[in-house]
Design a protein around this nucleic acid. Structure first.
Length: 104
DNA sequence: CAGTTGACACAAG
DNA sequence: GCTTGTGCCAACT
C-alpha cells in the first residue's frame, strides 16, 4: 500500500477539520469545495483517514448520518449541540441540517 | 491499463 | 417520503 497518500486526502481532511462545532456539511458540499463532484470519493477518504478528523460533522444529503456509523455519531452531535431529530429508522435519528448546514 | 469498491448525490417511479 | 437505478470520483487490486 502506498506510503504517500494522495493530496486529495489531505484536502478532504482540511475541509472537514474546518467545519465548526455545532455545524455539519454534506459529502457533496465537501466535494464541491474541493472542486470535485465525487461525493463517494469523500466518503472513501473518511473511511480510511476519517479517524483523524471530526467525520461526524460530515453527513449525507438530507441530514442522514453516515451508514453504519449513526450510533457512533449520535453522542457527538449531542455533545456539540448539533440539532438532531429522533426518527423511527434503524439509525434512530436525523440531523436538522437545515439549521446547522455549514457553508464556507 | 482495466476492473472493483465505497461512511454518496440526484432523478424517476 | 421511500425505494430503485444511474452517474461521478478517487483509491486499491
Amino acid at each position: 500500500m502506498p506510503q504517500h497518500p494522495a493530496g486529495f486526502v489531505e484536502a478532504v481532511l482540511a475541509v472537514v477539520d474546518d467545519i465548526p462545532p455545532g455545524c455539519v456539511a454534506t459529502y457533496g458540499d465537501v466535494a464541491a469545495i474541493l472542486g470535485s463532484r465525487g461525493a463517494r470519493a469523500v466518503g472513501q477518504v473518511m473511511a480510511r483517514y476519517g479517524s483523524e478528523v471530526p467525520w461526524w460533522r460530515v453527513v449525507r444529503a438530507g441530514g442522514r448520518p453516515p451508514a453504519g456509523h449513526a450510533a457512533a455519531a449520535r453522542p457527538r452531535y449531542e455533545a456539540e449541540g448539533t440539532p438532531i431529530v429522533a426518527t423511527s429508522d434503524d439509525d434512530g435519528y436525523r440531523i436538522a441540517i437545515a439549521r446547522c448546514r455549514w457553508r464556507p
